[in-house]
Simulated scan of single mutants.
Amino acid sequence: MSRVVFLLIPQVHLLDVAGPAQVFSTANDLGWPYTPAYVAEAGEVATVQGLPLQAEITWPPLTPDDLIIVPGWRGPTRPAGKQTLRRLREHHESGGTVASVCAGADALGRAGLLDGRRCTTHHTVQDELARLYPQAKVVKDALYVEDDRVVTSAGVASGIDVALHLVTTRHGPYTAGQVARALLVHTHRDGTAEQISPMVRWRSHVDETVHRIQDLIETRFTERLPLSLLAEATGCSERTVTRLFTRATGLTPLAYQTALRLERAEHLLGRGATAEVAAREVGFEDTRMLRRLRARTVPPADR
């Protein structure tokens, strides 16, 4: 059981709250337990859209598996109090993830969580964020950016994208795909070039046979999956599987599986796993293959 704590600031945008909340609620319905909590510095929080929200003024106990999300608000900066900012810092320092939607990045900046990290926000306030926090590395015109468990997004509908990204990193692309389909989100959207997910990039087609193949690969990407198994699962010949998959995605099934393995390995390495552990967890026989793949795709500064 994980908590998703929404820190509500006065004049918060409803969609910035409701979009991510719906993603985690749907994940809960699918068997991944999440408990929402809404906290603020006052018991009632005004929204831009006129519907007031009720919140707790006492924070629940948190573990590193829990998430804090700061939705965006309209108007002049409304700084959170020192105690609230301390909560954000302490959660991150303990190993937890802190995310923001739109102007919520300002609260992360005031907590010192943007210094030296890549981040983003809504395009109308990107320059202001860079001015306020000169030590931050503001990525312009990105939907979302993750850097060392600090996740920022552009706002509005991109709050759904960043929540789906968090579900992907925690539970894998198949689960995120189930959530997206339940929400009638036709296509995942890319975050930034540095954070592109294979499922995001190669799920925009409409070939249902290829979607079924991708579902199978995503649920069993750590296993050896011969072409004959994919053909049997879809009722196609091996040649047809390769032809359809390559036409829809630009990749062979094996290349797609390798991309999933590499993405998961990068996540494990970012959480402190050794190369040996990461390679074993994603299905590589040893670390040499992982190192060769990372040498081709990961900038030297990030290896």
Rank of each mutant, 00 (worst) to 15 (best):
Ser94Lys: 13
Ala99Asp: 01
Val101Met: 07
Ala103Gln: 05
Gly104Phe: 05
Gly104Tyr: 01
Ala105Cys: 10
Leu108Asn: 12
Arg110Ile: 06
Ala111Phe: 06
Gly112Phe: 12
Leu113Phe: 07
Leu114Pro: 12
Gly116His: 08
Arg118Ala: 09
Cys119Tyr: 02
Thr120Gly: 01
Thr121Gly: 08
His122Phe: 13
His123Lys: 12
Thr124Ile: 11
Thr124Cys: 04
Val125Ile: 15
Gln126Lys: 08
Gln126Phe: 01
Asp127Thr: 14
Glu128Lys: 14
Glu128Val: 11
Leu129Tyr: 01
Pro134Val: 10
Gln135Met: 14
Gln135Ala: 15
Val139Cys: 08
Lys140Tyr: 03
Asp141Gly: 12
Ala142Asn: 02
Ala142Asp: 01
Tyr144Lys: 03
Val145Ile: 07
Asp147Val: 05
Asp147Lys: 02
Asp148Ser: 07
Thr152Leu: 09
Ala154Ser: 14
Gly155Pro: 11
Val156Ser: 13
Val156Asn: 06
Gly159Thr: 10
Ala163Gly: 13
Leu164His: 03
Leu164Cys: 09
Leu164Pro: 00
His165Glu: 06
Leu166Glu: 05
Val167Phe: 08
Val167Ile: 15
Thr169Cys: 08
Tyr174Glu: 12
Thr175Val: 15
Val179Gln: 10
Ala180His: 04
Arg181Gln: 13
Leu184Pro: 02
Val185Ile: 15
His186Arg: 15
His188Trp: 10
His188Ile: 05
Arg189Val: 10
Glu194Arg: 03
Pro198Thr: 02
Pro198Cys: 02
Met199Ser: 14
Met199Lys: 06
Val200Cys: 14
Ser204Gly: 15
His205Leu: 12
Val206Tyr: 14
Val206Met: 11
Asp207Tyr: 10
Asp207Met: 08
Asp207Glu: 13
Val210Pro: 02
Arg212Cys: 08
Ile213Pro: 00
Ile213Gly: 02
Ile213Tyr: 05
Ile217Ser: 03
Ile217Pro: 00
Ile217Thr: 05
Ile217Val: 14
Thr219Arg: 15
Arg220Met: 06
Arg220Asp: 07
Arg220Pro: 03
Thr222Phe: 01
Leu230His: 04
Ala231His: 06
Ala233Cys: 05
